[in-house]
Amino acid sequence: MTAEVARALVAKALGRDTIEAGDGLATLAEWDSLGHMHIVLAIEAQRGERLTPEQIVSIATVADVVALLDG
């Protein structure tokens, strides 16, 4: 369930229709600096709290987003 939420969150932040679980900043052209900013802000909105600097640095793939939403 969290994986679906994470994929939807990333897809919306990057303006894409679909996102694969294995996608990340290395594989998606849309995952640029502005896209990354949208993803971080969307995760924070979903969690209802600010991420720590270490959590922000850890975000590089959809799997990382899943881990943060699970946490």
């Binding site: 900043l25 600096s33 502005l34 990354h36 900013m37 971080v40």
Partner: peptide, 13 residues
């Protein structure tokens, strides 16, 4: 700076 998401992205990328 810890909230400079764009710059953090650039270093990681």
């Amino acid at each position: 700076e810890g909230r400079n998401f764009a710059s953090i992205f650039n270093y990681r990328n």
